[in-house]
């Protein structure tokens, strides 16, 4: 009995140390949000209780070229529209790829996989040329279009795997009853896909929220900006204004942490559904 307790203590100690390593960077990010710049550079780990300040957050709430609420609104709009369109287009695509695995559809499956293997930076220049030729460069529409295309392989990949676990007999019996394939998919299959849809929602939300290169290049110097690109407004080539960097970081992180704590159960199950069935 004693031995068991000791090992449990040892295990918890080990886990606490590891958890500490995981949380220290967050501690740094959060505590420095509330410190004046000299204190950030001088004693980044310290908590100067008398000198904690909200100045950084207030100053960056509405900087001349960066308004946090506007950035939140715009990022949220991007996420919601991207998600709606990704799910509406990727899920039927995944259904077809899962049920018809021959000929062109098999090739299409591999073509989609290819898209999961390249870093987006590598094809940024061709993407810019394509968007430019259809007049969608520097527009919100262009950004959404690239996001949908970019997330398509991932969404299809995990959804295809998931649909594979749904019995084919469901489709067949419905078809015998005279339902069309489109009806079968939207009425019967899609409602069964909730766990995997949640998983796609989680990933796409995280990735879109945290992405900075795509919006920076595609939106250009326009009036739209996302929260994460805001960080780059505080970082010049020669200067890093740490008080601004941490404040904007704070603004960028907090919604995702709230999102996570709120949907924690779904996060874990969604994540698992996505990876185990894929």
């Amino acid at each position: 009995m004693r031995k068991v307790q000791l090992s449990a203590i040892g295990r918890n100690m080990l886990l606490l140390v590891v958890a500490g390593i995981y949380l220290i960077p967050f501690y740094i990010a959060v505590i420095n949000t509330f410190k004046p710049e000299p204190a950030i550079i001088g004693r980044p780990l310290g908590i100067p209780i008398g000198r904690l300040t909200l100045d950084n957050l207030i100053r960056n709430l509405n900087a001349p070229n960066f308004n946090v609420l506007r950035a939140y609104g715009f990022t949220l709009l991007t996420v919601v529209i991207t998600l709606t369109l990704v799910i509406l287009t990727a899920s039927p695509l995944a259904y077809v790829l899962s049920r018809f695995r021959r000929g062109f559809y098999k090739t299409a499956h591999y073509l989609l996989l290819a898209g999961m293997m390249i870093p987006i930076q590598v094809i940024m220049i061709p993407i810019i040329q394509i968007l430019k030729s259809v007049g969608m460069m520097l527009s919100f529409q262009g950004l959404i279009l690239v996001y949908i295309a970019w997330y398509m392989p991932f969404a299809t990949f995990v959804m295809t795997g998931y649909i594979g676990t749904i019995s084919k007999q469901l489709d067949e019996s419905a078809m015998i009853d005279g339902a069309s394939l489109v009806t079968v998919f939207f009425r019967i299959i899609l409602p069964l896909m909730t766990p995997i849809v949640v998983s796609v929602i989680i990933f796409v939300t995280l990735w879109t929220w945290n992405d900075f290169i795509t919006p920076l290049i595609i939106l250009g110097s326009g009036t739209f900006y996302t929260v994460t690109t805001g960080i780059y407004r505080a970082i010049g080539h020669y200067t890093q204004k740490w008080d601004d960097v941490f404040a904007i970081l704070f603004y960028a992180i907090v919604p995702m942490i709230v999102f996570f704590l709120w949907l924690q159960k779904h996060f874990i199950s969604g994540l698992t559904a996505g990876s185990l069935k894929g």
Partner: peptide, 27 residues
Amino acid sequence: QTALLFVPGFAIYACIILLSIVLAFYY
């Protein structure tokens, strides 16, 4: 109907990502 379900998603992907890869090869 299969095509109807397949095309929207795949077309967007093909027009942006696949075309970009082809363009990169061309360049």
